[in-house]
Simulated assay, not measured.
Amino acid sequence: MSPSRRSPGVAALVATTTALVLVAVSLIAGRVSAPVDAAPGSRSAEAGFARDMQVHHDQAVEMSMIIRDRTEDEEIRLLAYDIATAQARQSGQMFGWLAVWGLPQASPEPAMTWMHRPAPGGGDGHRHAEPVDDPEGAPAVMPGMATREQLDELRADSGIAAERRFLELMIAHHAGGVDMAEAVLDRSTTRAVDDLARSVIASQESEIRLMERLLSER
């Protein structure tokens, strides 16, 4: 069939396909010409953040799943679903970074070591949450993490009591996550890490404001 006799549908398909090919070519060219970040080392802030924030996010997912079973409030259930899906996706992204960087998922040093090293230039300008002790003796070194006892209390609650406990725990948990994201921004030279950290700060600060409102209503 000659170009002049193509049906409108075929012509539209050809035009769309051509446009997609051109977009793909431009993206490939951009990736080839763009500068590439060197892979971080195993003891770098980027690797430490990727490992520790996975643990931090996984607890947020756990708390969100608990409250979805303990409340009938649709606004709380929607918030919990949003937190769980967003943080599970980000946790998978950080797992993928370590794999791409050729680094082990297990840390070669204690958790949060990266956050307690001085930032380049001396001082990071942020006040970070202090570690707290787990009631069973293990140090909960990640800021904002709930203890096992607090998680058990959340599981034992229901209705408004569970909602209040969840909101209190998740506000503190999000604040700790923001601290960690700000700390890695002060220490990272990897664009993907910086982008995710900024996303964590923006989304979790927004959710903190929402949760503070929900808590005040209860």
Rank of each mutant, 00 (worst) to 15 (best):
M94P: 02
S158L: 04
R187D: 00
R51I: 01
H173M: 03
V14G: 01
S107W: 12
A50F: 03
P139F: 11
D82V: 13
A86D: 05
E74Q: 09
E109W: 09
M145S: 06
D124S: 15
P131V: 04
S216Y: 06
V32S: 01
A34V: 08
R70N: 02
Q90M: 14
P35A: 13
G122T: 04
V200R: 11
E72C: 01
G144C: 07
D52N: 10
D179V: 05
H126M: 06
G176A: 08
R191G: 15
G9F: 10
V178N: 08
E62A: 14
D37M: 03
R43G: 01
H126G: 01
D152H: 15
A34D: 15
A156P: 00
R155Q: 14
R70D: 00
A197Y: 10
R213S: 07
E130A: 15
T147A: 10
V184K: 04
A111M: 15
S42M: 04
A12M: 08
A175E: 15
R191N: 13
E75Q: 10
A146R: 09
A88P: 00
A162S: 10
S2W: 03
I28Q: 05
H128M: 11
S203Y: 10
S7Y: 03
V141A: 15
M211D: 03
I160G: 02
P104Q: 08
R164A: 07
V21I: 10
I208F: 12
L214W: 04
A80Y: 07
P131G: 07
L98V: 08
E182L: 15
E205P: 00
G159I: 05
T71S: 07
H116V: 02
H174G: 03
A86K: 10
A106E: 15
A50R: 02
Q54E: 05
A19G: 05
E207H: 12
T113M: 10
R155H: 10
V193E: 01
M115Y: 05
R187Q: 12
W114A: 06
R31V: 11
L196Q: 04
G144T: 09
G41Q: 08
G121H: 04
S206I: 02
T147K: 12
A86R: 12
D195Y: 14
V184H: 07
V10G: 02
V21H: 08
A99W: 01
L210M: 12
